[in-house]
Design a protein around this nucleic acid. Structure first.
Length: 211
DNA sequence: ATCAAGATTACCT
DNA sequence: GGTAATCTTGATA
């Protein structure tokens, strides 16, 4: 593989554009001498002050501080008393938008990912399919936690890379998962027919019927 | 000071 | 299908 680290400019573009473009790219993390690599298959955009589902909806706080940094940083938050989730910060400083990484397909370092997952969840079975399927599982596998909050994605510990010759697959869009406000927006992006996507989506073209 | 909710997961029937 | 686990945060008083 010929992976090229993305430049800062990638992240400084409109958030929905960045979200769609992230699909098929690679999350890379250095742990010691090992590199963990996962192909991004599912993300969600959170649009700051105009998005009631966003942590940044009510402005800057101690928790969401990093969301307001310049694009190309990692925003990591803690939730449900036990899980971490990570976001790619987008656009300019002071804007407060980001893209949640919801699932990746393990590409390299799966052995380390299995150990990391066992370390945090002490589970018996470790199917490859479930290693990074979901935002908190992904963080466990890549050993991403509060210490990584604010990491520069143009740095040497965590970054996103492209494979120049990779073929592009058009992403599908649906409403986001696990939120109660802002469900009218189709700001979840995923690769179709991919077993590493976290869930079968609430499909936008098949509204639920009553009766 | 108190409290409800949470960008989830694992395990149960 | 349902729900316990587990604790930080932000809102309200």
């Amino acid at each position: 593989m010929n992976l090229r680290k993305l430049p800062r400019g990638f992240y400084l573009r409109p958030t929905l554009t960045v979200a769609g473009d992230l699909l098929g790219l690679f999350l890379v993390r250095r742990i010691g001498k090992r590199l963990l690599v996962g192909r991004i298959v599912e993300v969600e955009a959170y649009l700051g002050e105009r998005d009631p589902a966003s942590h940044a909806y009510r402005g800057r706080t101690k928790r969401n501080e990093v969301m307001f940094w310049r694009g190309g940083h990692l925003y990591v938050y803690f939730t449900y008393g036990m899980h971490f989730c990570c976001n790619v910060v987008t656009e300019d400083e002071g804007i407060g938008r980001a893209v949640l990484l919801r699932a990746v397909e393990p590409v390299s370092g799966a052995d380390v990912m299995i150990r990391n997952r066992k370390r945090s969840s002490r589970r018996n079975s470790m199917d490859i399919t479930d290693l990074c399927r979901g935002p908190a599982r992904l963080c466990q596998a890549f050993r991403i936690d509060h210490r990584d909050n604010g990491s520069d994605l143009c740095g040497r510990k965590i970054w996103i890379a492209a494979e120049p010759n990779a073929e592009r697959v058009s992403p599908r869009r649906t409403a986001r998962i696990g939120i109660s406000n802002g469900t009218e927006h189709r700001w979840r992006f995923y690769l179709p027919n991919n077993r590493f996507v976290s869930r079968t989506p609430p499909h936008p073209l098949t509204p639920t019927r009553t009766r």
